[in-house]
Amino acid sequence: DHDVVPEDKFQETLHLKEKEGCPQAFHALLSWLLTQDSTAILDFWRVLFKDYNLERYGRLQPILDSFPKDVDLSQPRKGRKPPAVPKALVPPPRLPTKRKASEEARAAAPAALTPRGTASPGSQLKAKPPKKPESSAEQQRLPLGNGIQTMSASVQRAVAMSSGDVPGARGAVEGILIQQVFESGGSKKCIQVGGEFYTPSKFEDSGSGKNKARSSSGPKPLVRAKGAQGAAPGGGEARLGQQGSVPAPLALPSDPQLHQKNEDECAVCRDGGELICCDGCPRAFHLACLSPPLREIPSGTWRCSSCLQATVQEVQPRAEEPRPQEPPVETPLPPGLRSAGEEVRGPPGEPLAGMDTTLVYKHLPAPPSAAPLPGLDSSALHPLLCVGPEGQQNLAPGARCGVCGDGTDVLRCTHCAAAFHWRCHFPAGTSRPGTGLRCRSCSGDVTPAPVEGVLAPSPARLAPGPAKDDTASHEPALHRDDLESLLSEHTFDGILQWAIQSMARPAAPFPS
């Protein structure tokens, strides 16, 4: 592969990997390779389809078979030569091979799209000592099968071997295949498990690692696999990028399955594409389908809103127990993405979901129960707010008499603000006073009005108090039968009158 990737590009890729991570280095090298001529790309395919690569990765054979028959990708048995050289000459001794072996032994695996480039050397060096003999053996194999790289107009793939297949390693990572398949204008990513390549439709969760975000852009890794992070704060999961590491605690105790298979379609829109997988259930989501939507993949363990709600429900009964003089119970939860139609709101002032922060849900004790107040519409209280300059209440639009249902020339009671006709409430011909108009209920007259088809109010509507207090003497005590009587009149003013009279009014101040 030294004929494909020059030394300066190799060093530039290593520097970019240390600065921005393996995914960015892979993407940059792939983009550079696509700008080369067809001879360089053909050399790339020839390096990929060597015999030892085909033996190690069985899924490469179907890719090789898909090439046109007129494309010669065979390799000479006596060494490598550029395709432009007409004579089959043995190339001179390859010093770059020693360079590659020494550099890969030092860096474990470079971040390139060629056999030198995919593992994360920093994480491997940190986690190597417990498994040094086995990992050293794996390093000797890295130059042979560490990076199976493929690129063409139909298929483009980048393979990364790992030393996680050490025997006896619980939940060992089998390997990473960062794979971009450009077929019919689409893009897919796969993962390699035990020599087999699994596409998103049959993606397997190998051991402790999972394909957290099938994305090839942005600074985030394709698999949430930063070796420096180790395990999740809650004892979460091992990262795919942690090559040759000792077994780590796999999943939280509440995880239903340690080796679950995540779905390959969004649980909201039932469509495929780039998904984020939940650590607590097999569901996966688009970032845009979450509520609120996320802009980037959160670091650490992530769970959907259903799993978060289940966790909150487990903690909430203990938080609601009476604990005198104790601060509110704080339950730190990872930043969760909410699927459509589901929402768990945190306290005000918290950062938005999706940031690399930890939301704190506070379970406050329930407030003391209070008697429910009568629910009145805002339009129902409008007549009470229509007060004239002299303190006389004006008529609201649409006000109707509670007896006849007519809204023409209605009066407004100064005591309960109900609309009424003087002739309907006082049919006996009582003279109307000039000021202080009161309806039949507030004036103490319980004589029913002779209106055909309208039920008369119940005599129990009024329960006047002592006459010594004029204001308190007109406080009506309405009961269920009074409400039914008012409802039978089918008037809004009657219902409003009952609601206003049912509310307690402050006692009249004593004259000074």
Rank of each mutant, 00 (worst) to 15 (best):
L384I: 08
P457G: 15
P292C: 10
G436N: 10
W498R: 01
P256Q: 09
S488L: 09
F426A: 02
C307W: 06
V403K: 13
H474D: 05
V410G: 12
P334T: 12
P367L: 04
P365N: 05
T435I: 12
A251S: 11
G402N: 09
R270Q: 13
K261L: 08
Q325T: 09
G341F: 15
A284M: 07
R318V: 07
E274G: 12
P368E: 15
A251Q: 14
G300L: 12
H415N: 12
F420A: 03
M503T: 12
R438T: 07
H382K: 06
I276E: 14
A418K: 08
D255P: 12
R423P: 11
G346T: 08
K468M: 03
P332I: 06
L352A: 03
E330W: 15
Q393G: 08
G407R: 07
C304W: 06
C439H: 00
G375R: 08
S485C: 06
P427R: 07
V268T: 09
R303T: 08
R318A: 14
S378Q: 02
P334N: 09
H425K: 04
P427H: 11
L478V: 08
A428N: 14
D377H: 12
A310I: 14
E330T: 13
R303W: 06
G244T: 07
R423N: 02
G273L: 04
P374A: 09
D482W: 01
L337V: 10
R338I: 02
V403H: 08
G453H: 13
M503V: 04
A504I: 03
L376C: 08
D271L: 03
L385V: 10
D409H: 04
A507W: 04
Q393D: 07
G346V: 06
L258R: 06
E342V: 15
P347S: 10
C439W: 01
G349V: 13
G375V: 06
T447W: 12
C266V: 04
S254A: 12
G388T: 04
D482G: 04
H286I: 03
D271S: 14
L352T: 08
A248H: 11
P334W: 15
E274I: 06
R461T: 02
R283P: 12
S458H: 14
A507S: 10
P372Y: 12
R295V: 11
T491W: 05
S305I: 12
Q309M: 11
E475G: 06
V403T: 07
A396K: 02
V454E: 00
P282F: 08
D445N: 06
A508Y: 09
T331I: 07
G244C: 14
R461A: 03
L333W: 14
T414R: 06
R270N: 10
C304Q: 15
L287T: 12
G494I: 10
P247W: 00
L287R: 12
A248T: 08
S245Q: 12
D406G: 09
C439T: 01
